[in-house]
Simulated assay, not measured.
Amino acid sequence: MGLTFEHTTLGQRVLFGTGNAAEHLAGEIERLGARKVMVIASVRERPEAERITAGIDAALIHDDVAPHVPIEKAEIARNTAIRNDIDLLVSVGGGSTTGLAKAIALTTGLPIIAVPITYAGSEATNVWGLTESSRKTTGVDDRVLPVTVIYDAALTLSLPKDLSVASGLNALAHCIDSMWAPRTDPINQALAAEGIRALNNGLPVISSNPNDLPGRERVLYGAYLSAVAFASAGSGMHHKICHVLGGRWNMPHAQTHAVVLPHVLAFNAPAATGAAHRIAAAFSTENALEGLNTLRHTLGAPTALKDLGLAKENINEAVQLILPAIPASNPRPVTEENLTVLLTAAHAGTSPG
């Protein structure tokens, strides 16, 4: 039987260049003909946002940003954009900042220019997420896909080493989940494999020397590939677990992904040998889990959900919330029993494999 698949490539302009963020941003605003720009950045990210937007006439800077995009924060930001007659959103920051810009775009249709300073990857997807009453809801809508992404590795220098590692492993989770997500195909698997190679090469460099710009460029490149693969392949078992944990117990996004990833890989790999072989080849190891665990050991990655705010008594509730969200196409059937075992090991920090 011949190769048969359906693939959709999202249309987006990408500008990549270290030290060029301010120049690229000004050029894009002019190209788009925007008159009233709303810059979105968290309080921590605001100094960087002010620096790279100093050359543009921004109508306002909005810094009321929170992880997992609480619905009340989204409504405030939406009303602010409408009240100020905004015609362009510029997000400068990580996944939470990009997520808030997407929440505005979802209801207003305003275009977004994203300037990432982490490796979250949200900027390259048409996926949105909102949290209400400790429940995180996600969806897909082309209105939230940024029209332009501006990558500048120098901006990631403000990211502490530990968060750089966790954010990079979050990007790696996009790659690995894309290998067996509901809409996986050979194109996004190829992008994901190249993303794994780039992240596996770059993360140890910036872990040992956080100021190494070529290493940060490599990781930023890998993070972009991971997000493009994820946007095409869809959200798999790993992301369903992490979205529930993050939304329900307000756990840190990147670190939660970093902890859960090896457990999902160990769970699915025996039932997805083709994907496992591709992952292993990207790590240049005989075994996919060996490659991931070696990288995690090198990086000193976080290991236990108990250290991130999940109580052991919450595991049963987590299982009940996660089970209905697991894609039917997951390579291995997920049951209440085996999901409990997986989360119990991730909670304790037991190394899978």
Rank of each mutant, 00 (worst) to 15 (best):
H238T: 00
L265R: 15
N250D: 14
V228D: 00
L265E: 10
P262V: 08
G234N: 08
N250H: 15
A233W: 14
G234T: 07
I241D: 03
W249K: 14
L225F: 04
G236V: 00
H263M: 07
H253G: 01
A231K: 06
F230D: 01
A254D: 08
G222P: 13
V244P: 06
G222Q: 03
G222A: 04
G236P: 08
A266H: 15
A223W: 05
G234E: 14
L265M: 15
H243F: 09
G222E: 00
N250S: 14
A231I: 03
A258W: 01
H239W: 07
S232T: 08
G222T: 02
A229K: 01
L225A: 07
A227W: 02
I241A: 08
H253V: 13
H253L: 02
A233N: 09
M251Q: 12
F230Q: 09
L225T: 03
N250K: 13
A227V: 11
H263T: 02
A254N: 06
V264C: 15
H253C: 05
W249F: 10
A223F: 03
A254G: 11
V244L: 11
R248W: 06
H263D: 03
G247M: 09
F230A: 12
L225Y: 03
L265G: 13
H243S: 00
K240L: 05
G222R: 02
H243P: 05
H238G: 02
P262G: 12
A231T: 02
H238C: 07
C242L: 12
R248C: 01
S232Y: 07
K240I: 00
A254I: 11
L261H: 10
A223P: 13
Y224K: 15
P252V: 10
W249N: 06
P262S: 14
V259A: 05
A233H: 11
H238V: 00
Y224V: 11
G247W: 09
G222C: 04
V264D: 11
L225W: 00
W249S: 01
G236Q: 08
A233I: 03
G222W: 00
G247H: 10
F230H: 04
R248A: 05
A254L: 07
S235D: 00
H263A: 09
V259R: 04
H257P: 14
V244T: 15
G236Y: 04
R248D: 00
H257E: 01
V259L: 06
N250M: 10
L265D: 09
I241T: 02
A258Y: 05
V228N: 00
H263N: 07
V259C: 08
A258S: 13
C242Y: 09
L225V: 08
I241H: 13
S232P: 01
G246Y: 06
P262E: 07
S226H: 01
R248P: 03
H263C: 13
V260N: 07
F230R: 10
V228A: 09
W249V: 04
Y224A: 13
G236D: 02
V244H: 10
H238Y: 03
W249R: 04
G222Y: 00
F230L: 15
V264H: 13
A254T: 06
W249H: 11
A266K: 15
